[in-house]
Write a protein that binds this DNA or RNA. Structure first.
Length: 472
DNA sequence: TGAAATGTTGGGGCG
DNA sequence: ACGCCCCAACATTTC
């Protein structure tokens, strides 16, 4: 048996279980070098919230690797240079990694792979983060699907929902000395202000936290998911697995496997895994999904850029409590409930007529679950410019959505505390509250809490007119 | 994975 | 007893 080391290059697959690249490397019995590169040359820099998450996720991965006898090496720079250096330093002749699907990383990987192969090295790549490769599910006319429902139906036969790989029992350690950057030196954490420590209580970052979240969710809440997933006021309405999934602390296959006992009651939940797969299909075939309208017909749409309105939205100061609660939840916890995402996104695009790309960028920066496929596809979905998109005339009413899905106003009270003393009758529409009610609640509109920055009815009519104009 | 406007129905109050 | 009006409640259409 050869003693030449193998490099396992970790990316958005920060886990030791169900990690094909790691498992295959371990299986060879050869020394394994586990590497993470903070890439400085990729098309898109990670957002602030994602960097914060990544820091802790790398910490957790490092501990998980140590438990099986391996060490995580950290480096920062251009991937191909770092791999070259590491090959030089260690004499490694094989590199294993799990595939990624966004354009710039794909190009980086392709270039590295052909270069290394040309030099006689072995490169093995694996599917680890999707249930099926985005190029496999095809329509009868050999196209990729552009509508979710038929896609998901057709995909069933191609999904790899088999048993997840176990954590390798032990990994042969590479005994030579390898320099590693310290985690701190990657400078992933925010310093001033240190908003990270305020987000910490909301999460248990790492694959153990992910496994626990899955177990908890599958153990009960999943059965009520079809109803409760719309209720941001309920703690267990959704799984909150998204950031774990985005960094690969858990795989979709592990999630599917966790639901195996009651696949039927988990159907609606697993369809969300389907939306993720579908988003990757769209991204794979439309590499510029985050920056260009999927439907070119939208290119002429007349947006109404306004820095003031954009900032009011970003900071949760629109004067619509449900929208503001969502935007503040995002800012404070790095996450926003999915029902609320639809409402806040619709508000930015349709009430404020601000380009969906502005929203996409903000979410990319502030979400801990920011995912190159889901984020882009979902913003285009709301804008109506995407595949299988929400119709142009679907304009969410920001206060009736609140009344439907946060019926007691608890969600608003939690994130918009200056309104917390308002009775539920007015909590989603404080501008309609009688003066004595406002006085009692200590609310002065325009002072302690903003008046609506746009009138709902007017904004709705303007949006319909704008969409109509762009269709002509 | 909407909302609002418009149309229809049917019970009850009332002359 | 009967017709008329009002207006919820529900259904359909439109954006």
């Amino acid at each position: 048996m050869s003693d030449t080391p193998i490099i396992v290059w970790f990316r958005r697959d920060l886990r030791v279980a169900d990690n094909p690249a790691l498992s295959e490397a371990a299986k060879t019995g050869r020394p394994v070098i586990c590497l993470y590169i903070l890439e400085t040359e990729r098309e898109r820099e990670l957002g602030g919230a994602s960097k914060w998450w990544l820091h802790h996720s790398l910490q957790s991965l490092s501990e998980d690797l140590e438990a099986i006898g391996a060490t995580l090496i950290l480096r920062k720079g251009q991937a191909f240079r770092i791999l070259d250096m590491l090959i030089e330093e260690t004499g490694a002749d094989s590199i294993y990694w799990n595939r990624r699907y966004d354009l710039a990383p794909r190009e980086i990987d392709a270039a590295i792979k052909s270069d290394l192969k040309a030099r006689g090295l072995t490169v093995e790549t694996f599917r680890a983060n999707l249930l099926s490769e985005p190029w496999t599910v095809k329509t009868k006319t050999d196209n990729y699907y552009k509508v979710f429902t038929p896609y998901w139906r057709a995909a069933q036969d191609s999904l790899d929902t088999g048993k997840p790989l176990p954590t390798p029992k032990s990994i042969k350690t590479y005994t030579g000395e390898i320099k590693s950057n310290s985690l701190e030196s990657l400078k992933l954490l925010p310093s001033s202000p240190d908003w990270g420590s305020k987000m910490s209580p909301h999460w248990t970052i790492g694959s153990k936290g992910a496994a626990k979240a899955l177990e908890q969710f599958v153990g009960g809440p999943v059965a009520d998911y079809p109803e409760d997933r719309n209720r941001p006021d309920k703690d267990n309405g959704t799984s909150k697995l998204s950031p774990h999934l985005a960094f690969g602390e858990i795989s979709p296959k592990q999630i599917w496997h966790g639901c195996k006992g009651n696949l039927d009651s988990a159907r609606k939940f697993l369809a969300e895994i389907g939306w993720r797969e579908f988003s990757y299909v769209l991204l794979f075939h439309n590499p510029k999904l985050a920056t260009e309208n999927f439907k070119p017909a939208f290119d002429g749409f007349e947006w109404n850029p306004s820095e003031d309105n954009l900032q009011a939205w970003q900071h949760g100061q629109t004067g619509y409590p449900f929208v503001d609660a969502g935007m503040r939840q995002l800012w404070q916890t790095g996450w926003q409930h999915n029902r609320v995402r639809m409402v806040t996104a619709s508000f930015l695009i349709k009430h404020l007529l601000i380009d969906w790309r502005e929203g996409e960028k903000w979410f990319w920066d502030t979400l801990v679950d920011a995912d190159p496929a889901s984020n882009a596809a979902s913003w285009q979905w709301v804008a109506g410019s995407g595949a299988d998109a929400s119709p142009y005339f679907r304009i969410f009413n920001p206060f009736t959505q609140g009344e439907k899905f946060d019926p007691n106003g608890d969600y608003v009270r939690k994130f918009v505390p200056e309104l917390s003393k308002l009775p539920k009758k007015y909590i989603h529409r404080p501008w309609e509250a009688p003066q004595n009610v406002l006085d009692y609640a200590g609310v002065t509109l325009g002072k302690t809490y903003p008046k609506p920055i746009v009138d709902h009815k007017e904004a709705r009519e303007k949006a319909l007119a704008a969409y109509k104009a762009s269709r002509e």
